[in-house]
Amino acid sequence: MQKNNDDIFNLILASTVHDMKNSLGMLGQSLKSIFEHIDPAAIDTKANNLCGIVQYETSRVNNSLMQLLAIYKLENEQLPFNPSYYNLYDFLDEQRLLHLPLLEAKNIDCEIDCDEDIEGVFDESLLGTVLENIIGNAIRYTKNKIAIRCNQNDMLEIEIADDGSGYPEQMIKLEGNYIHGINQSSGSTGLGLFFAQKIAEMHKHKDQNGSIELANGGALNGGRFIIKLP
């Protein structure tokens, strides 16, 4: 009977997610249509910014939904993990494009520094969810620049850096215990980091495990998120 209830719950979960995602898609598209109906002269910076906020919050809801779902599945040993080879530049470029409307609305410069021929081994949809969240946060906290950099030596390393005021010291100190960073009163991004850590750790090769790292400084002198995959 327990098993049956799980099945029903899974079914409800799947169809609810499907529904919510349709709604989120419609929300974005309707907003676009509204803008198309307005006289372009009437769209000022303020309207553009507000539009950006709606887009940002939409993608945040979507991203949280995906993380929540993934963590639920992880707990129930149902999270699909299917690593394969992917072209890294294409992958990162796509992550950037997901945020393009918002980047443009907020006038943030986002550059990718990655060799076009590098292939990495990772689970595309899981790493995509991780980066979507991190880039989303970078957009929120940066002043006007984001840099996505990657290189592959012993490990595949992806860094997302911004020129904002950086990660709070107590967050950097968590070093791998990001579950403790989830704090209701501060509305902290703990879930995103906790998720990122989990996903990084799923990536294994020989006796190496993936990991994440937070730091401040670097070339942009802001926050730096680094994910390393073996």
Binding site: G25, L27, T58, E94, L97, L100
Partner: peptide, 16 residues
Amino acid sequence: LTKPFNNQTLKLRLDR
């Protein structure tokens, strides 16, 4: 293509 998506992602996926 994962919902929700925008013009850019749609075009990119098609191109690729």
